[in-house]
């Protein structure tokens, strides 16, 4: 194939105004990024509260629509059968525990120890009334029988003394 297509001519003028625009754009972008990261947006933008945060908020959490995130406590799931049924469980962050009351059938992934984000409000009795239940999963994806690979990894790590704590 013969290639006859050429870039348009004339090329854009090489002018300093455009270079200043480049500098300006980079400065604006960098300033925006700096403001977002250093300006404490991390504390001001909260997707969900942990059980400890909800406990600390006390009465403020009552009646307000909030999201509570954490893990489903072991052995806390109680479910009365059938559609539209009552579903009770506790959400924990290892320090505090908040009991949650929900209705209906949870997503398939719902089980003990899995992460959940529930939307709703605290009631006066200290039970979180859940209106929307979302299951969050970690970043681990494992084959059901996963003998070789991870074991080899662990073996190598342990022989080299690189076993990381809290990994």
């Amino acid at each position: 194939m013969t290639d006859t297509l050429r870039l348009p001519t004339p090329a854009p003028r090489r002018n300093n105004a455009r270079r200043w625009l480049a500098v300006l754009a980079v400065v604006v972008a960098a300033a925006g990024f700096g403001l977002l990261t250093a300006g404490g947006i991390g504390e001001n933008l909260v997707y969900y509260w942990g059980p400890s945060d909800v406990k600390k908020a006390g009465d403020q959490a009552i009646g307000a629509t909030i999201r509570l995130g954490g893990q489903v406590a072991k052995g806390s799931i109680r479910q009365s059968g059938g559609e539209g049924s009552l579903l009770e469980f506790s959400v924990t962050d290892g320090k505090a525990v908040v009991p949650v009351r929900s209705t209906g059938v949870p997503p398939q992934m719902f089980r003990e120890d899995i992460g959940v984000v529930v939307e709703g409000t605290m009631t006066k009795e200290g039970v979180f009334e859940c209106r929307r239940l979302m299951v969050s999963h970690g970043n681990e994806y494992r084959a059901p029988v996963d003998a070789e690979a991870p074991d080899m990894e662990k073996l190598i790590k342990s022989t080299e003394g690189l076993q990381q704590a809290g990994d």
Binding site: Y47, G69, S136, N139, D146
Partner: peptide, 19 residues
């Protein structure tokens, strides 16, 4: 940076080899 519903980035350590 933030609490999120979305999981963190995976890495070869968190994903089985055949995946």
């Amino acid at each position: 940076w933030w609490n999120s519903l979305h999981q963190m980035q995976s890495s070869p350590e968190t994903v089985s080899a055949p995946f």
